[in-house]
């Protein structure tokens, strides 16, 4: 079970790290939404190039990015392969036994894959270059509804606490001979384990709530944050927004 470590490179120095988190969020989100709207393969490739360029500028190691692409790859690669063989348009360009690939199919499969990878790679300059607690505060300053941001904040905080708890429970199970093989027993044991986690979490939730009450909680969850927007922050945002627009109108 892995701890989230998306912001482990937040301490590096780069123009993207120095960028005001609010401007950065807005601009790169703009770019992500622009990339997914692209319908032309060449433009999508340009989008992918921009994404990779931003990662390079941010100095985030590329192998860190690649390590995080498994989830998307598991989804996108099979999907593109199915499209490649099932969507027929234009000239036939290859044939394997009873499967044919057409130029239209190749182009469409590539378009989907390139858009998907461009979008997911853009998450890194956006999220990995700031500490996640700061990202959450930036979201709040951007007027994302405060209740939602608070939920994200508490959930994020307790993910770490509960991962430890689950690891302790799993260790205890293993020491009592639980092997986790592929059988019904494993599923039943897992169900009980999660049930136990849930019962303990409810108790913890109650204790946390008491701790909040005892420090005067009445529903107010302000935090103090200092963000400063400089001209260069806006300039960087303007450049990326211009690219985002260009990707879809040119």
């Amino acid at each position: 079970m892995e701890y989230p470590q998306i912001d482990r490179y937040a301490g590096l120095a780069s123009p993207i790290h120095r960028w005001d988190p609010r401007a950065k969020l807005v601009a790169i989100l703009g770019l992500i939404f622009s990339v997914v709207l692209i319908t032309d393969l060449k433009m999508a490739m340009v989008g992918l190039a921009v994404a990779i360029l931003l990662v390079l500028v941010s100095r985030i190691p590329f192998r860190f990015v690649l390590g995080h692409l498994a989830g998307v790859s598991f989804f996108i690669l099979p999907l593109s392969v199915i499209i490649l063989f099932s969507y027929h348009q234009g000239d036939e360009i290859a044939r394997f036994a009873f499967l044919t690939v057409t130029s239209g199919g190749l182009e469409h499969a590539s378009l989907i894959a390139v858009r998907a990878f461009a979008a997911v790679i853009l998450i890194f300059p956006m999220i990995s270059t700031v500490r996640f607690d700061v990202t959450m505060k930036a979201l709040e300053r951007l007027r994302v509804p405060v209740r939602l941001v608070r939920m994200i904040m508490f959930t994020y905080r307790y993910i770490f606490v509960l991962i430890e708890e689950v690891q302790r429970m799993l260790r205890a199970l293993t020491s009592r001979g639980f092997t986790g093989g592929m059988n019904i027993r494993t599923l039943i044991t897992t169900g009980k384990l999660i049930g136990m986690l849930f019962v303990r979490t409810l108790e913890r939730a109650e204790r946390v709530y008491r701790a909040m009450l005892s420090r005067g909680y009445e529903g107010n969850l302000q935090t103090l944050v200092e963000f400063k927007m400089r001209k260069t922050d806006l300039l960087k945002a303007a450049v990326l927004i211009a690219i985002a627009v260009a990707l879809n109108v040119l």
Partner: peptide
């Protein structure tokens, strides 16, 4: 809200 969030964290984990 804090309680719902902590249960959400358990689901996530």
């Amino acid at each position: 809200l804090p309680k719902v969030s902590i249960v959400t964290a358990a689901l996530f984990v």
